Amino acid sequence: MPGLLMAGSMLAVSIFLAWKNGFPQHEPTAIFAAIMAFLVSLPALLVPVLILGGILSGLTTVTEASAFAAVYTLLVGILLYRRLTWAKVWDALVVTIRFSGVVFFLLAASSVLSWFVVRSGLARDAADIISGVSDSRTIQLLLVIAFLILLGTVMDVLPALVVVGPILHPTMVGLGFDSLHFAIIMIVTLNVSNITPPVGMTLLTAAKIAEVPTERVIVAAVPFFIAVIVSILLLAFIPSLSLWVPALLD
């Protein structure tokens, strides 16, 4: 549900921007043509299914699933579609190495910044201060969300969870929040860091793929950032959005 909510909010922003800027519309596609296109692309669409299925089922590790998907893609492209040549494979490898070099350089820089935040105790001290500011559930929750968004601008998701999760979780549970509900809020909020500089890896990756200046991408991402913030607030103050499906499976 949180993922669908965020996807829906960003889809709404995309539709509004397309209408406002007069983006060209695609010609209507016949149902039969759409079905045939889906069937033709089905072998390629199985790649994420194989990756996630192998990882979630426990049959493979993340690395093994990635390697298996790479081999599967090569076989499908060469033997089934017959459009993937070794020259194209080599070009793809060269582009990937160049692109990965930029991404890993950014990751290295963000890791140094994260190390400083952790070693200095800034994140831990800020979490302690927030947990003692007020006994009001609403104020506490808003402060925590604001803090997590700020933290996400200088730290990646996993380090931030490890640093502040054990500190914030007991306080929020003590205020009456469900553990799962608060965990979802933390994860969704920290994922905003993927589209906020300077550690916004998704933002920087998108700029690199589109070959446009990062500053232009940051400005273009503002409406989507607002949509995500609205989604976070809805998840925070309407717990059923996060807990409805788990309650059905309980």
Results as ranks from 00 to 15, higher is better:
residue 24 P to E: 04
residue 23 F to V: 06
residue 86 W to I: 12
residue 68 F to V: 14
residue 71 V to L: 12
residue 13 V to S: 00
residue 221 A to S: 14
residue 200 G to T: 04
residue 35 I to R: 08
residue 207 A to S: 15
residue 191 N to E: 06
residue 197 P to Q: 01
residue 198 P to R: 02
residue 26 H to D: 10
residue 6 M to G: 03
residue 116 F to L: 13
residue 137 R to C: 02
residue 3 G to E: 06
residue 167 I to F: 10
residue 120 S to H: 09
residue 208 K to E: 15
residue 113 L to H: 02
residue 185 I to Q: 01
residue 231 S to I: 01
residue 110 S to C: 13
residue 23 F to Y: 13
residue 19 W to T: 03
residue 109 A to L: 14
residue 82 R to H: 10
residue 192 V to S: 02
residue 9 S to M: 15
residue 111 S to H: 12
residue 42 L to M: 14
residue 160 A to I: 05
residue 15 I to M: 12
residue 158 L to Q: 07
residue 236 A to L: 01
residue 174 G to S: 11
residue 4 L to A: 15
residue 14 S to A: 15
residue 51 I to T: 02
residue 21 N to S: 10
residue 123 A to G: 06
residue 19 W to G: 01
residue 196 T to H: 04
residue 210 A to R: 08
residue 59 L to R: 13
residue 10 M to L: 13
residue 37 A to R: 15
residue 243 L to Q: 02
residue 104 F to H: 09
residue 87 A to E: 10
residue 193 S to R: 00
residue 135 D to H: 09
residue 201 M to D: 02
residue 110 S to I: 14
residue 193 S to C: 07
residue 187 I to S: 06
residue 242 S to D: 09
residue 163 V to Q: 00
residue 50 L to H: 03
residue 144 V to Q: 01
residue 174 G to K: 07
residue 236 A to N: 01
residue 120 S to Y: 09
residue 136 S to M: 00
residue 43 P to N: 05
residue 213 P to R: 07
residue 189 T to I: 04
residue 183 A to F: 07
residue 35 I to W: 13
residue 18 A to R: 10
residue 231 S to V: 02
residue 79 L to N: 11
residue 97 I to C: 14
residue 44 A to S: 15
residue 157 V to C: 07
residue 29 T to S: 08
residue 117 V to Q: 06
residue 226 I to R: 05
residue 248 L to G: 14
residue 208 K to Q: 15
residue 42 L to N: 07
residue 212 V to D: 05
residue 242 S to V: 12
residue 2 P to A: 05
residue 210 A to V: 08
residue 128 D to V: 13
residue 92 A to G: 05
residue 209 I to P: 13
residue 172 M to P: 00
residue 78 I to L: 05
residue 250 D to I: 05
residue 46 L to F: 13
residue 177 F to K: 01
